[in-house]
Design a protein around this nucleic acid. Structure first.
Length: 722
DNA sequence: GACGGAATCGTTTTT
DNA sequence: CGATTCCGTC
């Protein structure tokens, strides 16, 4: 094959990173600088130039999407199959290790992965059984505590009694939680990472096997790694100096969930023989946008330092719109969108980015009334829906009856006469004897300790699960089992009688689950040798599926700034850029968090390719009361010469009603539309604020960047659209 | 166990 | 303000 295709499409910095000698590498990849390309080409380089076999390559990402993109791009570039390469998410790879070495990891062969929802349920129930007041000990907080400890590599047995009541109580729950998970054969997300780390740490032969095997280790989005993830990477690469990480400290926005930006700095200490490469040439955004981004982020300290540049020219300046209130803001944004579409633009090239999900509503309403198709990111994913989780719980219980989380979930769903009293009896027995709920139920039935009605109901439930268990064991096709479950469990019936749309979609989703099982391509040669059912259940836990992915209709994209990371759009609206919202109120006290907000703003700015509009409202109704926020400090941190202000109400003070009082409605047929950038012979560049009159009498008000706000008669003024 | 009224509480999200 | 959850009643 032609080796030059690996190197020739790269710029100098990318080439430097890709062709560097085999050593520890830190690639600081700015937004839009081609970081995935560097990773893909670096892998290709190893395969073709350094003659490393595919199965000696490890590449780690955070999301399944990133992992599959990387795999596909390697395959495409080299026209090979990347199957034997270990490319996956931290969790996916950890899971794989644990399956292959379940025994050494001290896990049952059939352990199952639970998602955060399952985990929370387990914790709630645990608090109850320990008689802990869950108003004083909110389950969410307990969950955060446990995951936090695990992320730091701390087991309950490592913790000591430091006298703090809060800490001690949490410790007790953590301990009980560990026991419950072990008993049920359940592993949460943080546990996957922690246990994979312990597996390698405590098994010398395994560790040296994998150290030899993974000759080159690659990591994407390194700034998002947490303590245990980095520790795991270090274990694997210690002494080999073969860790290649790509990241951007300026895009670290997940500190609040355990990501340690310090890992980038520590990397430099831990791998003294490393090389740093900066990717600063940006292929995404215009010059004005990059200028804004660079200036903004320069207000942060303790950066690795980086400045984005482009040779593509300045492009349009940013627009800044000061809205009266949140409705006006939505009105303005949607008008601009309609203009873009009217001028032949695609809706899917447009994104509205906001700090918090609640902000989407105003925009949705406005988009709805103007019949503009849109898509909101961030809802529940397929495998997270209640009805799907219920159906999966039946399958999980049939695979492993000691799975207490699943047992709890469906023992009385749909209701089958197993009430609170029976459940309590089971829970107490299970707790006191340290057995699963399934085992406890068997005991209760055998010893005849239940009233007849409850007894027969419980027996019927156990029979159902047993029947299901047989079905799946009989090598019937997976989808047959799923079909059987949703019928025999009564779930279909339950949702059929649920009122209106809700129930209907639930039934449809259940049918879709059967379909998903049918389409699931089971590889019986899977390295872990899992049954089709186990593999499917793991798939469901580790890959919750796309957001409501239907309709590839041309849609405006609405999402939070966080979920926009990694994406790009020709036209971006960054809305609600106000003190208290963005940066959020909660970040005010802590400079560290404030800097993370700034990085989030940096991420937002760098999503835009051609046009970036920033808006804020001078009045916003929040939590039922009016607030009058000041524009975000971030706006002042963007150089004025890169921003064009669109100030509609040059001579209007306060709005009387919520209805916008300016003249920019659909009635205006003028080609001088609100926000249109224009150039005047004498006054220079400016932007249209409003228009009035027709034909000979048509006047436009323009805010010139240098000459200020002017009214011009179109019949006389020499204006060009730009 | 289903329904409805009251109380509560408000970032960001992937695995 | 509005979504979610909790609690009490039938």
């Amino acid at each position: 094959m032609d080796v030059s295709s690996i190197i020739s499409p790269l710029n100098d910095a990318q080439r430097l990173a890709v062709s560097a000698p085999m050593q520890a590498m830190l690639v600081l990849a700015g937004a839009g600088s081609g970081k995935t390309r560097v990773l893909v080409h670096r892998i290709a380089w190893h395969l073709k130039i350094n003659h490393i076999a595919p199965h000696n390559i490890l590449a780690v990402t955070f999301t399944n999407k990133a992992a599959s993109e990387m795999r596909h791009r390697v395959e495409e570039l080299l026209n090979i199959s990347a199957r034997s390469m270990w490319i996956g998410t931290f969790h996916g790879l950890a899971h794989r290790l644990l399956r292959q070495h379940a025994k050494q990891a001290k896990l049952p062969e059939t352990f199952q992965v639970m998602d955060s929802d399952d985990q929370l349920r387990i914790i709630k129930r645990l608090l109850k059984s320990l008689n802990i007041d869950d108003t004083k000990w909110p389950p969410k907080q307990v969950q955060g505590f446990i995951n936090g400890q695990k992320e730091e590599g701390i087991r309950a047995r490592h913790m000591s009694d430091n006298g703090d009541f809060y800490y001690r109580q949490m410790w007790q729950v953590y301990k009980a939680y560990e026991e419950l998970c072990d008993r049920s054969g359940l592993v949460d997300f943080a546990e996957l990472l922690l246990r994979a780390h312990e597996l390698l740490r405590d098994n010398e032969d395994l560790l040296s096997f994998y150290r030899d095997r993974f000759q080159q280790v690659h990591v994407d989005e390194f700034q998002d790694t947490n303590t245990i993830q980095y520790a795991w990477l270090r274990l694997l690469t210690e002494g080999n100096n073969n860790l290649f990480v790509v990241g951007d400290d300026d895009q670290s926005i997940y500190g609040w969930r355990g990501a340690k930006i310090e890992n980038i700095f520590n990397f430099q200490k831990h791998y003294p023989d490393h090389q740093v490469v900066r990717l600063e040439q940006n292929y995404r955004s215009s010059g004005h946008i990059l200028k804004a981004a660079n200036h903004l982020i320069a207000h942060n300290d303790s950066r690795m330092g980086k400045e984005l540049w482009t040779d593509a020219g300045d492009g349009l300046p940013l627009s800044l719109y000061a809205a009266f209130n949140e409705q006006d803001e939505a009105y303005f944004v949607v008008e601009k969108i309609r203009q873009w579409v009217k001028d032949g633009g695609l809706r899917s090239d447009i994104a509205i980015l906001y700090r918090s999900n609640a902000q989407s509503r105003q925009f949705e309403e406005r988009l709805m009334t103007t019949a503009t198709p849109y898509r909101v990111y961030g809802g529940l994913r397929f495998f997270e829906r209640m009805e799907i989780k219920n159906a999966l719980a039946y399958l999980r219980l049939s695979a492993n009856p000691h799975d207490d989380a699943s047992f709890e979930r469906i023992v009385n769903t749909p209701t089958r006469g197993i009430g609170a009293k029976t459940l309590d009896d089971m829970r107490i027995l299970a707790r006191d004897n340290a057995v699963s709920l399934w085992q406890a139920s068997l005991t209760l039935l055998q010893e005849n300790r239940l009233p007849p009605r409850a007894s027969s109901a419980l027996q019927a439930f156990l029979n159902l699960i047993n029947k299901l268990s047989q079905e799946t064991a009989n090598h019937e096709a997976l989808f047959e089992s799923v079909k059987y479950v949703i019928e025999a469990s009564g779930l279909i019936e339950l949702y059929k009688k649920e009122k209106q749309d809700k129930g209907e979609t639930r039934v449809e989703n259940l049918e879709e689950l059967v379909n998903a099982a049918k389409l699931f391509d089971y590889d019986s040669n899977n390295p872990e040798n899992l049954s089709e059912l186990d593999l499917f259940l793991t798939h469901a836990a580790l890959e919750a599926g796309e957001m409501q992915g239907d309709a590839d209709e041309d849609c405006v994209q609405l999402m939070t700034l966080h979920s926009a990371k990694g994406l790009e759009f020709k036209v971006v609206f960054m809305v609600g850029v106000e003190e208290g919202l963005f940066p959020s109120q909660q970040s005010f006290e802590d400079p560290g968090r404030l800097q993370e907000e700034r990085r989030l703003c940096y991420v937002g700015i760098t999503r835009a390719m051609q046009q970036l509009t920033i808006s804020y409202a001078e009045s916003r109704r929040l939590y039922g009361k009016d607030s009058y926020p000041r524009p975000s400090r971030f706006i002042k941190e963007i150089p004025a010469e890169a921003i064009q202000e669109i100030r509609i109400r040059a001579n209007v003070t306060r709005p009387v009603a919520s209805t916008p009082s300016y003249n920019s409605g659909p009635a205006s047929k003028s080609r001088y539309k609100l926000g249109q950038a224009v150039r005047h012979e004498k006054f220079g560049d400016g932007v249209v604020l409003q228009t009035e009159g027709d034909g000979e009498q048509e006047r436009v008000q323009i805010n010139f960047r240098n000459a200020g706000i002017k009214w011009l008669m179109l019949a006389y003024a020499k204006l060009d659209l730009i």
